Simulated scan of single mutants.
Amino acid sequence: MSLAERLQGKEILPGSELYDEIHVNKADNERLVLELNQGYHAPDEVRRRVSEITNSKIDASVVISLPFYTDYGKHIKMGKDVFINQNVMFVDLGGIVIEDNVLIGPFVRLITVNHIVDPAKRRGLNVAAVTVKKNAWLGANVTVLPGVKIGENSIVAADSTVTKDVPANTIVAGTPARIIKEIKEE
């Protein structure tokens, strides 16, 4: 079981061994992300460096436009034929899965971390995974909040904030995102 899976549903409080471990890993990742985003890198080099950041293989069919941002890095998994545009932010401590043929527009934010509501524990963290299913498209400047699944073939319109699961074959828009249309194959 991965660390991301073990963290699901738990409060991660400051001063705990786990909290400290997370922040050590986060600091190591910041160096790798900074190095990735300095200067031009050929596509193969970008994939190699993102593989190092995520500690997972990035398929040769994946296209990642720089700059690429992640706060933790080790909990991102990508399928094949994924396109990630510029300035996408992965807050991935809770785990992010991007399946095959996904399109992610510029300035998208995939967020898997939330702070605890109780004021006495506010600096603590809760995490919940984000999943983007096959052939989904996230438009520019979309925010996906913790625990959300974006359904297969769905579209999230630009500037939307997704707070709940998106069913397959639908278009959602707005803040919070709501279904505006079903997608029917022709």
Results as ranks from 00 to 15, higher is better:
V82F: 11
E45Y: 01
G73H: 00
V24I: 15
Q86F: 11
A42T: 13
T131D: 08
K26A: 14
K57L: 12
T143K: 12
V162I: 03
Y40T: 01
K134E: 15
S2V: 00
Y40M: 10
P67N: 07
D44I: 00
L138I: 04
T54F: 10
V113G: 02
R178L: 11
L34N: 13
A42W: 13
I98R: 02
E52F: 01
P106W: 10
L110G: 07
L13W: 11
V148Y: 06
G139L: 05
V63L: 13
N87V: 00
T131E: 07
V162F: 04
F90K: 00
H115V: 07
D71S: 11
V127R: 10
E99L: 12
L93T: 08
P167Y: 11
H75L: 00
L93K: 00
R49C: 03
F68I: 00
A140K: 11
K57H: 14
G124C: 03
P14W: 02
A60K: 07
L145G: 05
A158V: 06
V97A: 08
A168L: 04
L66Q: 11
A140H: 07
G174S: 04
T131V: 14
D92H: 05
S51N: 06
A129R: 15
G151S: 05
N29C: 14
Y40G: 00
E52G: 04
N101E: 15
I183K: 14
E182H: 15
N114G: 15
K26C: 05
G15R: 06
Y19D: 06
S2N: 15
P14R: 08
V108I: 12
R109V: 05
E21D: 12
E21R: 09
E17V: 15
P176F: 03
P67T: 10
L66G: 02
Q38H: 15
A168D: 15
V24Q: 06
H75K: 04
R123K: 09
T163A: 10
P146C: 07
P119D: 04
V102W: 14
V117Q: 14
L145E: 09
I180S: 08
A27D: 06
D20V: 13
R122K: 13
V62S: 02
V162C: 05
E30A: 14
A136I: 08
D59Y: 04
S154M: 02
E182N: 13
N37H: 07
A120V: 11
V97L: 15
E17A: 09
V142N: 00
I111F: 12
I171F: 04
V88Q: 01
D159E: 13
E17F: 10
